[in-house]
Amino acid sequence: MMARHLAQRVGQALLVLAATFTLAFLLLQALPGDAVLIKFLELGLTPDQLAEIRLAYGADAPLWRQYLHTAGGFLTGNFGTSIRAGVPVAQLLAENLPATLLLAALAFAAASLLALLLAGLATLGGQSWLRGLVRSVPSLFVAVPVFWLGIMLIQLFSFQLGWISIISPEPWEELALPVATIAVPISAPLAQVLIRNIDAVLAEPFVAVARAKGASHAWVLRWHVARNALLPTLTMAGVLFGELLGGAVVTEAVFGLNGLGGLTQQAVANQDVAVLQAIVVVSAAAFVLINLAVDLLYPVLDPRLARGRRAA
């Protein structure tokens, strides 16, 4: 029973992954004239040289062969060669990924803390005017352009207050503002969902029953609200990952940091499709894997799903 569900779910994930690869291939490799041409025409190469290069990049082969060739490459970890840098894309990814992952991980941690803080104040805080005020904060956070927030933070903390040096920053100084920049917009949807969940759980009859048992407010939160309100936020993990990555790309551009963001920007600017295709497929793969993990983990954490399936 469990095995069949697992197989089904993994199959679905693979299907989406294959479709994503195909879409990326169609968008980037198949449809636009071809990038090689654009790039090397600018360099003033002769048609003979061009033909040679095209042959080397496999751009002359029929579409289906290019597709199979690229797909085969992705499956074996060969993401092609960057036209601009002339090095394997896999190498570029390996060089740039760690910095971005660190940034994203720190930002995610900060966003989670901020969201918990906001949700706590909005649902449990003392005064009702304070709760109302805090409830409007996530909408504001969502409305702020990431890049602008980054610039404003630099303006405030580096130029006005002088707290964070921009000339020769310490490692923590280099990361503090980018992390805050990404974390603020990411925290907003998390906080909104948390607030909604906590409100919903507090209105559940089982909370009234707990209070009728004599439970204090803190007891109700610890034993009844926490798990029921936090559990559904797991399903947001995939979407949040996508936003984290997008936020990191923009933020790295604002702060001039090296990473996936810088790589992406260069790839777009230079029409370096192999690089962009690899970034798209790898991040989609991460999205699919995260969602798969959440789907498989959820029944372990929620007894309703776990036992329900066993009973059926």
Binding site: P205, F206, V209, A210, H224, R227, N228, P303, R304
Partner: peptide, 11 residues
Amino acid sequence: PQDPVTSLNPV
């Protein structure tokens, strides 16, 4: 309580 289905914590 009134509704036994929603009056127990599901988890």
